[in-house]
Amino acid sequence: MGWIHDGLQSFLELRLLAPAMCTDGSFRPLIATLLLLVALQAYADGPVVVVMSAASGVDRLTREEVVNIFLGRFRQLPNGQSALPVDQPRDPGLFSDFYGQLVDKTPAEIRSYWSRLRFSGKTAPPEQAPSEQEMLQFLASNPGSLGYLRAGQQPAQVKVVFNLGD
């Protein structure tokens, strides 16, 4: 379970950094606790999984394929079909965890990356779904489309093609 490892690592790094960040000893426990809460918050909801419609005909994707599709480098599925990724920017926690677990990039870095491609007329960013429900509807009506969810929350009409916690 890579995400537990990552979570622990973040916690340990922050715990080690915390004493150095404050000169007044009395604030240390408080700051350490706050940092711990922040670290745990980022992983509280667990890993993110990439899902496709159960009727898509795709069973499994590699991490490289998911990166290529979501970052617009090469949007083709293993069966030759065009891939159509869907983001959920209105769920900042999910958006942040998805790109953090996929390529270790922050939402600001992802936005910066897309500003380069968008304003040089290249690939368009993923479709923007306002909610998980709309993402699922989009997946149902577009067989080549991919979205993401928290692990263990996927409804029956979609299947997990990649688990970012693996």
């Binding site: 936005r111 910066s112 990356y113 500003s115 380069r116 304003f119 040089s120």
Partner: peptide, 9 residues
């Protein structure tokens, strides 16, 4: 081709 987009670098 994106030299003017300061936010991108």
């Amino acid at each position: 081709d994106s030299r003017l987009v300061g936010y991108s670098y």
